[in-house]
Design a protein around this nucleic acid. Structure first.
Length: 307
DNA sequence: GCATGTCAAGTTGTG
DNA sequence: CACAACTTGACATGC
């Protein structure tokens, strides 16, 4: 087996910074000025994304999660825009092609992870519609950059889990292929467990991203080994490398285990993951970012092969 | 300049 | 019933 450790969105020490703006700051500007401002941020962030991949490569990190606001306010109801609206459109497009080429040549894995506001299973039509729009945006970016995963939580439990999953099923059917082929579901730390999601993932032909920390916060009776296997099955059916998440609780496993710690406590690393028969990606969700990956790598030294 | 409060969005659970 | 927790640092604002 081999393990691919992934960095999530940001660097703690390396000088790689993504930029953003706010809707209220843009409100004072005319539309052309807004687009000029957004254009320069998108171009700068595209260059920063390439720099991020180069930095990962230099650090021996072979997976990277791209932050959702790479293109700030892209799907905002008032400030939203299309790539073609931006004055630097050609330069941005060219830079993203460079990102895609770099990713491919180094065999890196890229992913996107829409945040908690993206609720495809919501019973409220405007919420589900804006979730679909956001997913389409991330699907376009994923296509352009060569990312193979857009990872999502199922959402709330309005009326019940089966009803929510049915709404998810219907909304999924309406998405474009760019999103459908990349969308994955992840167990969360309060509601949906691996046991809840595995059947839906199998039915829809999508990957189940297994977050072991969430599973420990929100257990379903399955062992880590059993949940790992449920996830592996969904990826095996697709012929793709499996995807896991790992983090440690900031305040220990007591009353509030959900917040993430700076580093991974190696005791939290599932030893089942050392005995898998295939390569897997493990996103390291730790506030010390690349420093946490370096420490985990040294903890893992000699125990498994790292990609 | 430097410190501080804000940031587009949903849902659940707490106080 | 209102608000904090998710996560999170960069940016905008105000002194």
């Amino acid at each position: 087996m081999a393990l691919r450790l992934g960095l999530c969105c940001l660097f703690a020490a390396a000088p790689v910074k993504f930029r953003r703006t706010t809707a209220t700051a843009l409100a004072r500007l005319g539309r052309d000025e807004q687009l000029a401002r957004l254009s320069s941020l998108c171009l700068e962030n595209s260059m920063t994304l390439l720099a991020a991949l180069e930095e990962c490569q230099a650090l021996g990190i072979s997976a990277f999660r791209v932050m959702s606001p790479l293109f700030p306010l892209f799907t905002h109801p008032e400030r939203g825009y299309q790539l073609g609206d931006l004055p630097d459109h050609d330069a941005i497009d060219g830079k993203l092609r460079e990102v895609a080429a770099f990713r491919r040549s180094r065999g890196m894995r890229l992913s996107f992870h829409p945040d908690q506001f993206v609720v495809l299973s919501s019973p409220r039509p405007p919420v589900a519609a804006s979730a679909a729009a956001e997913l389409e945006y991330q699907g376009v970016l994923a296509s352009l950059t060569g990312a193979d995963v857009v990872n999502l939580h199922l959402g709330g439990v309005h009326e019940g889990k089966p009803e929510s999953m049915t709404r998810f099923r219907h909304a999924f059917a309406g998405l474009t292929e760019a999103v459908k082929t990349r969308l994955t579901l992840e167990n969360d730390d309060r509601l949906y467990t691996p046991a809840d999601l595995a059947p839906l993932c199998r039915e829809l032909g999508i990957g189940l991203v297994y977050d072991v920390h969430h599973h420990r916060c929100n257990p379903d009776g399955l062992s880590v080994a059993a949940a790992t296997e449920l996830s592996l099955e969904t990826w095996r059916a697709l012929g793709r490398e499996a995807y896991f998440h790992l983090s440690s609780p900031k305040h220990g496993w007591g009353a509030k285990p959900r917040p993430h710690a700076d580093y991974i406590d190696f005791a939290d690393f599932p030893e089942e993951w050392l005995r898998l028969g295939c390569a897997v990606t493990v996103d390291v969700e730790a506030k010390a970012k690349e420093l946490a990956i370096a420490r985990l790598r040294s903890d893992l030294a000699g125990r498994c092969q790292l990609l």
